[in-house]
């Protein structure tokens, strides 16, 4: 474990907590894409299939349980909670999951470290996570008003993957034959997708104005 990875995991945890706080305290999910939340639940399910078979560390297991539990809770809140679901903008959140999941599944079947069920599912989870934010970014473009919590949530979600890239560089330099192209490429694509969001988020912070994404 290195400081980059620990900070990355804590940033990821913070992003989930910010979102849960928003949904749980003000009972609103305005501006949040249910599609992205569902894709994240799928990502964690496919990536943590080994949660009961391979024990790596208490930290690893506890974090997996937290990410699984929170991602499904958020989906449950947005779908079934009688107050929260009212603030879900389903007419604007129209990105089709299948357009993201199918190409990722095909790619995982073609490019993986080993052709076993768990390995392909693990690979699929990385490709899917790289593009899972797209429905959310599309929704942001459509719904002009981005409230602070939503902006912070997306910023933290993007920052965690950028920190993971630092972790991968650190491990590549310090650990012999530590090479994992699949997470590296997926993580790079994922971080780049946040590129313009980071740019506008930084501008809104620097000019102290409300976050606005160009149409």
């Amino acid at each position: 474990m290195n400081i980059f990875r620990l900070t990355a995991d804590m940033t990821h945890l913070m992003s989930v907590i910010v979102l849960l706080l928003k949904i749980h305290t003000i009972k609103s999910c305005a501006g949040i894409s249910l599609k992205t939340q569902e894709l994240y639940a799928i990502v964690f399910t496919c990536r943590y299939l080994d949660i009961f078979t391979d024990f790596i560390s208490f930290y690893n297991t506890i974090m997996k349980v937290i990410f699984l539990w929170t991602s499904f809770s958020i989906v449950w809140y947005m779908r079934y909670h009688k107050i929260v679901r009212r603030s879900y903008d389903k007419d604007q959140d129209t990105f089709r999951h299948v357009f993201l999941m199918l190409p990722c599944l095909v790619l995982a079947l073609l490019i993986n470290e080993r052709f076993t069920f768990k390995e392909v599912m693990w690979t699929f989870s990385f490709y899917l996570e790289a593009v899972a934010i797209l429905p959310q970014l599309v929704l942001l473009q459509r719904t002009r008003n981005i409230d602070n919590l939503t902006g912070q949530y997306i910023f933290l979600l993007g920052a965690y993957r950028a920190l993971y890239i630092l972790n991968w560089i650190y491990r590549y330099v310090t650990e012999p034959n530590y090479v994992h192209w699949i997470p590296w490429m997926s993580g790079l694509v994922q971080t780049l997708l946040y590129g313009d969001f980071f740019y506008y988020y930084f501008l809104s912070w620097k000019n102290n104005v409300k976050l606005q994404l160009p149409a």
Binding site: D9, H12, N60, F67, E113, T116, Y164, H180
Partner: peptide
């Protein structure tokens, strides 16, 4: 290495 060694990250 077997599945989990190379998968120590979240």
């Amino acid at each position: 290495e077997c599945f989990h060694e190379s998968k120590d990250e979240l």
